[in-house]
């Protein structure tokens, strides 16, 4: 009662001055955050754009060369190779990863014993560092003594040299990344599934729809916002894949598993062509932006259909 009385007393004064102006307090509380935000986020985004128009090797001063770096992006055959590898990597990881995590989520989305255990087990790879993961998987992929080839030998497949052959290196990395992110996506799917009201299924059952029919006509359409969200996040993150590459194959053999960010890293911190690396960074930025916008439009379309 006290509070509401006070509020009523306060109202006219507030309305007279429109709203209290908290600028001094806001400045005080925001200052540390904004200083860091501008120094290490906003300024670097603009600086990268500036450097992308220069040639800079860390020794001399940056030399402005106009659009040369961007022209080079189109001519450089390594950009074509790494872009292609990134795309292939995305095409493997995203659909398989999403199908796998959706499957786990569907079976977990029911009253079932040991739910917490299953959920924890699936999530474990997501909380483990890529360094730890890469060490174990390199041992699993060992062509002679590794677990992978041993298990495959039961179905008659033998002698795959996973990480050290140019035909399988990218696939090997894709498998590790699918495994690592499945639990995270599973959790998002699970939340989406739990958000679907039971009444739809009850109505479906009354109409005599089979489980499969219910899945196709109720679950999938109702889940589409979640699915789209996971899709876009997966595409964006697989375009930025780097840690597993540098840790397990270093982009090799040859350039068979070299992806866009790996080439960016090499240009910046091995060849010291900072300007060119910045242009690659903006190419990546542009792709991410494109995927985001494409997805927003697609999502609207799909919503109209259902």
């Amino acid at each position: 009662m006290q509070i509401s009385a006070n509020r009523n007393l306060n109202r006219p004064r507030l309305r007279g001055r429109k709203l209290t102006d908290d600028t001094p307090w806001a400045m005080l509380m925001l200052a540390p955050n904004i200083i860091g935000f501008f120094m290490f986020m906003v300024f670097p985004i603009l600086a990268t754009l500036f450097f992308s128009f220069t040639e800079y090797d860390l020794i001399g001063a940056p030399k402005i060369i106009g659009l040369d770096n961007y022209v080079e992006l189109f001519r450089d055959p390594i950009i074509a190779t790494t872009l292609n590898n990134t795309l292939v990597f995305t095409l493997i990881t995203v659909p398989i990863g999403m199908a796998f995590s959706l499957l786990l989520a569907i079976f977990l989305d029911q009253k079932i014993a040991f739910k917490r255990f299953y959920r924890g087990a699936y999530f474990l790879p997501s909380i483990t560092s890529m360094v730890a993961v890469s060490i174990v998987w390199q041992w699993i992929y060992n062509p002679e003594f590794g677990l992978m080839n041993y298990l495959l030998s039961f179905v008659g497949i033998r002698g795959i040299t996973w990480l050290s052959s140019s035909s399988t290196s990218l696939l090997s990395l894709a498998i590790v990344n699918i495994w690592k992110s499945a639990g995270y996506n599973m959790m998002l799917f699970l939340a989406g599934l739990q958000g679907i009201s039971n009444t739809y299924y009850e109505a479906g059952q009354l109409d005599g729809a089979s489980k499969w029919k219910q899945f196709i006509h109720i679950t999938l359409p109702m889940l589409s916002p979640t699915t789209f969200f996971i899709f876009i996040m997966s595409v964006i993150s697989s375009f930025q894949v780097f840690d597993s590459v540098i840790l397990m194959t270093k982009g090799g053999p040859g350039r068979s598993s070299s992806v866009l960010v790996h080439y960016l890293y090499q240009n910046a911190f091995q060849y010291f062509s900072m300007g060119y690396a910045c242009a690659i960074a903006y190419l990546l930025f542009f792709i991410v932006l494109l995927v985001t916008m494409l997805n927003m439009r697609l999502e609207r379309k799909i919503k109209e259909i259902f």
Binding site: M41, I45, T48, F51, Q240, A268, Y282, L284, V288
Partner: peptide
């Protein structure tokens, strides 16, 4: 800025 890939800011930093 949350949408910006970290690789865009790492070089100036």
């Amino acid at each position: 800025t949350m949408m910006v890939p970290m690789h865009v800011i790492i070089i100036p930093n």
